[in-house]
Amino acid sequence: MKLLGAVIILVRALVVLFLVTFMITVLVRLLPGDPVDTLMPFATDEGREQLRSELGLNINIVQYYFRWLGDFVRGDFGQWYASTGDGGGVPIGQMLGVALPRSLFLMFYTMVFSLTLALPIGIFLGYRADTRIDRTLSNAMFALSSIPSFALGLSLVYILGLRLDLLPVLGYVPFTESPGEHFKSMVLPVLSLSVGLIAGFSRLLRVDTIATLREDFVTMASSKGLSNGWILWRHVLRPSSATLMTSAALQMGGLIGGAVVIEIIFALNGFGMLLNTAIVTRQYLAIQSLVALIAVAFIFFNLVVNVLYAVVDPRVRSARG
């Protein structure tokens, strides 16, 4: 039964992936302008013909889609074309090798950091709902979350980077090169992205916590003589975290391609910047493959959250058979 459930979930994910990537293929084809003219204005006739066939402009879109899908599944994301046509292109896989780890680390640290802070804050605000400290903190969070991340980023650069001279103001250091410098280089971008997330996450958790605290099992737990802290962490947190998890999964998908502004400010040049450049320079194949990867990420994180739901709330397991 459990196996069947897992298979159904996987099949559903694959169908979604299939539909999304096909939609992307259609949308990319609908972009205005002739891709050949835009990508290789200086190519020879043979070069142009080759590009036409690589972009599938000479075959129908369904045929092209399956060819692209085959390449994509094999990990061949196509190449970043040079305007001269042949010879100058860079495999997109190689460029991803540089850009993707940066975005993944950025996303990972941001999520770990913001959840680490949002969990206690959200639980605490829910516990102290409608008291003065709740109102003060909630308003402060709301104010913080309305600061654009780039403005916050630049202020943090000024304070932590320049004034206090604690951290590098930009750039990325690979973990393998120096773990210490790696962490340092990630602090400011992670902080800039996290503040808004912490505010958002803790608001979600606060609301669900308030609802959970009204449950009988919380009174029951108090009647056992457990401390408030124990009750909040062991009894209240998990049943209150469903909305938070859903939101976190969406943010994880979103942060991979959507942290462009922060990537620009801190010269991180990760996945978001790569996608941005691909769109600006009309790298058709790159757009298609990169957007498909984001879709894969979204679906993956959703799957992870589905699994986590079952871990956090065992009732979900049985509902799935």
Partner: peptide, 23 residues
């Protein structure tokens, strides 16, 4: 709180809602 459990204890009306569903 020190009296709870050892001194006084309570059984609740609905065992479905009074037991923590996720533990």
């Amino acid at each position: 709180r020190n009296e709870f459990g050892t001194g006084m204890a309570m059984i609740f009306q609905d065992p479905m809602t009074a037991l923590n569903p996720v533990r």
